[in-house]
Design a protein around this nucleic acid. Structure first.
Lengths: 230, 230
DNA sequence: ACAAAAGTGTTCTCGTTACACCCATGT
DNA sequence: ACATGGGTGTAACGAGAACACTTTTGT
């Protein structure tokens, strides 16, 4: 039944582009679709918006279902609404961008979806318009990284500067100068050096750092855009 | 009928936040809603997404219906999807941000909607969550203005630097230094000075400028975000 | 002649870039 | 002792910020 005479209803879905960082590479989490059409093909994690929930709530539920994680950093991206994007039924999809720490995830993964992490630079062809969704999310991640320094949602509790630099290099698909990178990141005051080192990557070892979340909340939460003229 | 068993459908609408600039002030275009609930109250211009059109297409149609304009600068913002946002029927709304030149519009306005321009800093309370939509659109406009210099979609074909400065001051709700503003905008190479002046605003008169659209397309179209580190 | 807005130039500061060497350690 | 990756300093440059006086012209 429909109180707005004669308007047609449609299905609304959400799809999540889930980014993770394993200390080396930036990755995305994909699943094998469990129902027709395109059953068994690689896909983003998604689901339908239920009558009693907002799209944001739907995205949180879906993320929890797959990863077991709550309180994940989630941000709405775009709506994909080509009338033929799903061949069976008119469905619009609201995409979400999620940042998670791979180590949290690994302990809680649900095996129901045959999920797998793929490097952002090399992953399979996805169903429908999901490849476009990933491309938009990658651009958005570059944007996030620029205005919202230190992507702590992606980082484990302790990480090294070379790891952090590797993360930024993955996001921007470029090489950065170690000295300039270090100086800039440390100048934010958001990183606290620990007294011990990670010996995985080298003989000398690299100091661990933690995010100084208090400084983060105080200084970087509501950064606005600006013209660059006063 | 629904091929994805048991998923509930819902209505999808689009709502447009339409910005215009009259040479003095930044304004938004509002209409008086023509049907219940909330008939007669101030509202954004909107409509339902039809079965054979994408949300982007729906937004273009709606804009054309109200303003008569085609090819308007339109950008998708966010989805509003609180389950109770429309009291009569579950409806999600995809919001769009439009920039138009008030003078183009004035010649083509449709009177069917009792539309009116309001200053962005002083407009009536709107129905549902439309005030939130306007706030998000204002932030997005600040963002657009920062990465996409010279908002030519809002400008008449010929405009003066004091007018342009007034536009930016409206967008950022701040005061700018005339000398720095002029230097920065002229340094983009996007403005071409005309030989005649606008005598409206002062005895001395201010030179008219035109946008150099060729330079705009070459230099500013696909600006990416960046970290600010190399 | 004067009021009112338009137009213009210089200095300082600070953040970004480019660039090369020493350090600590496990083997 | 040496190979490997980690860590650090400095000089040059450019963009933004601060700041005040002259120009034009209608009345």
């Amino acid at each position: 039944m429909n109180r707005y005479s004669s308007q047609k209803k449609l299905l609304a879905a959400v799809d999540c582009i889930i980014f993770g960082f394993d200390g080396q590479q930036l990755k995305i989490l994909l699943i094998q679709r469990g129902f027709d059409p395109e059953k068994g093909k690689w896909s983003l994690m998604g689901g339908y918006v239920q009558p009693d929930e907002s799209c944001n709530e739907a995205a949180s539920c879906i993320l929890k279902e797959l990863t077991g994680l709550e309180g994940v950093y989630l941000k709405q991206l775009q709506v994909f609404s080509d009338p033929n994007r799903d061949p069976l039924e008119r469905t619009i999809s609201v995409t979400y961008f999620a940042l998670i720490n791979i180590h949290d995830y690994e302990t809680q993964i649900s095996d129901d979806y045959h999920a797998e992490w793929f490097p952002v630079n090399k992953f399979p062809k996805l169903i429908f318009d999901h490849n476009d969704m990933v491309n938009i999310a990658r651009k958005q991640l570059q944007h996030e990284a620029a205005i919202h320094p230190v992507l702590f949602e992606l980082l484990p509790p302790r990480f090294t500067l070379p790891q952090l630099q590797g993360l930024y290099e993955g996001i921007y698909n470029t090489q950065l100068d170690k000295r300039n990178f270090t100086r800039k990141l440390l100048s934010t005051g958001l990183l606290t050096r620990q007294s011990d080192k990670d010996k995985q990557g080298s003989r000398k070892g690299a100091f661990f750092y933690k995010i100084n979340k208090k400084a983060f909340r105080q200084n970087y939460l509501q950064k606005d855009f600006f013209l660059g003229i006063k």
